[in-house]
Write a protein that binds this DNA or RNA. Sequence first.
DNA 1: GTCTATAATGAGATAGAC
DNA 2: GTCTATCTCATTATAGAC
Lengths: 204, 204
Amino acid sequence: MTLATSSINDILAAAEALFSEHGYAAVSMAQVAQASGISKSNIYHHFSSKDDLYTSVLRHACQDTLKQVQQLSASQGDSIEQLRHFSIHHFQHLHQKSRITKLILRELLDGGHEHSRLLAQQVFHEISLQLKSLIQKGQEQHYIRNDMDAHHIAASMVALNIFLFQSWPILEHLPNSTFTENTNSQSMLFDILLNGFARPNTPH
Amino acid sequence: MTLATSSINDILAAAEALFSEHGYAAVSMAQVAQASGISKSNIYHHFSSKDDLYTSVLRHACQDTLKQVQQLSASQGDSIEQLRHFSIHHFQHLHQKSRITKLILRELLDGGHEHSRLLAQQVFHEISLQLKSLIQKGQEQHYIRNDMDAHHIAASMVALNIFLFQSWPILEHLPNSTFTENTNSQSMLFDILLNGFARPNTPH
DNA sequence: GTCTATAATGAGATAGAC
DNA sequence: GTCTATCTCATTATAGAC
């Protein structure tokens, strides 16, 4: 049990909130100090630089998400129901951990320093693995079409959720928008996709 | 013909490249000056502040994209072929105008100042309109299922393209990745989706 | 481990000559 | 319209006492 000291966690939590909301460059160490209630110099005592603080935040956040995603797989029902279950919980996870989600999406845009990209990649890989196993099982049991690549089906499920997450502020304010409720749209998008990869004549 | 002077265009072009690649806060006016070959003070002669420069870049970029998207609709074939055509060209557009694409995606993450979000929203709205008209025509002609909302079908098409655009660096480096070629994956994702919203027993 | 004080640098923005 | 030189302030990071 190598529990980090309380002040380190305070710093990481404050930094995570600020970095995810405004991005690396837009956040100053003074802001982190004020938000965490810990003096600037003390932060430099625990982290060698602003960059060190940032990568620590990213590493901490990704490890946390990684564990959560690994525990996400088990559920009742056939393959289709398990996929729907996963999709719904993946979407909930994006929102519950919205700061980490934004951090990773920012890393994608920034082209990422080698190290950061590897962390983001681990998260993607873990989600991809979970989904792939569910999909391939569904293909073996003939719930899911065999002429489609499992990775691409997985990607499309993730894509819809992420798009809905990050574009929601715009979607809901679109003229004549039918995007009135978050989870409802998620369900509709999943059903469109499900019709695409489910085997014809299965009861869904 | 209110054509802006050459130096203003130089500044806007350099700023667009830098802002899209690194984000607003990470770019200094000195960098813009060096990249555009125009002195810092001269930039302040044309733009009242860094913020003014940024919003000008965004406005300029969005107007440009808006025009391009409006010219994207006309094509041969039935509704399904027109949708495939639109999807492919939308995807190409994201890459050809990758700097603008990144600018808009950044705006989504930053939560946007009111004004910026409205600009991004116009682009989404225009794409949404084009797609909606194609989809509804397809529904009237019974190529596309009537029990699905046109807006959500449109959103899912956009979602897959945007996800592929922004996640490609990670997707292609995933272990055992089947994401080997950009346009090929785009085609596969579209086909999964198409199976979802196309009417059964149509020849596609 | 935690702080106050301060150094050193870089940022946005302006003055004023040409 | 364009530049050099400069102002002012915020930023990262360090020194050193407790």
